[in-house]
Design a protein around this nucleic acid. Sequence first.
DNA 1: ACCCAGGGTCATA
DNA 2: TATGACCATGGG
Length: 222
Amino acid sequence: MDKKGNQKKLLKQLYQILQGEYGPQNWWPAETPFEVVVGAILTQNTAWTNVEKSIVQLKKEKSLAPDAISSMPLEKLQKLIRSSGFFKTKGRRLKEMAARYAEIEDTYGMPIEKGRETLLGFNGIGPETADSILLYAGNRPTFVVDAYTKRFVKRYGLLAGSNSNGYERVKTFFERNLERDARLFNEWHALIVKHSKECCRKKPLCGGCPLSNGCKKMFAGE
DNA sequence: ACCCAGGGTCATA
DNA sequence: TATGACCATGGG
């Protein structure tokens, strides 16, 4: 069995364990694709619990829609999303995104690379946000790499060598070793986040950690 | 009183 | 191309 085959088998095993432990995640936690995009921008370097509060505020104002956000005064929007932090920057990003939401929607039907390039052209949409939008709003099979994913890869020793933590490197690793399927990519990323929060974030190590070796490494400081 | 969270941009070397 | 400063709130 070649190296690539081994990595495929390893990922399959890890997936079975995570899936068995946590069950289907059915991400993204949102009611509409537009809500996914808003959440993707608001959660940049921000705890999701803080984002939820902003979503609630927007819904309370019945303003979680492209027209409502693009026509809303910037100051009002910034007040509504204050809990997500970086509210001045994110307010501007949201307004630009909302005003041009038709272009965002178009990317859901494009070849992935083209859609990705289009999204990266927006101010405030970088690699992770672009991939999150394509996968979770557009249901396109592109793998999302976030801080949890990088830690996961590093701590379970899935990738070695220099630059093994780079965004593209990690993304390519998963895409080369998994069937290119949006549903699978969706579950994989959600399970990594779920596992990181449930098991590996705080000590002590939970008793029934499904991936105890990785958790031990994590607490050892790598 | 610190640390960090489901990043991205911009300036500098 | 590769770091570093900056954006800012809320929970541990």
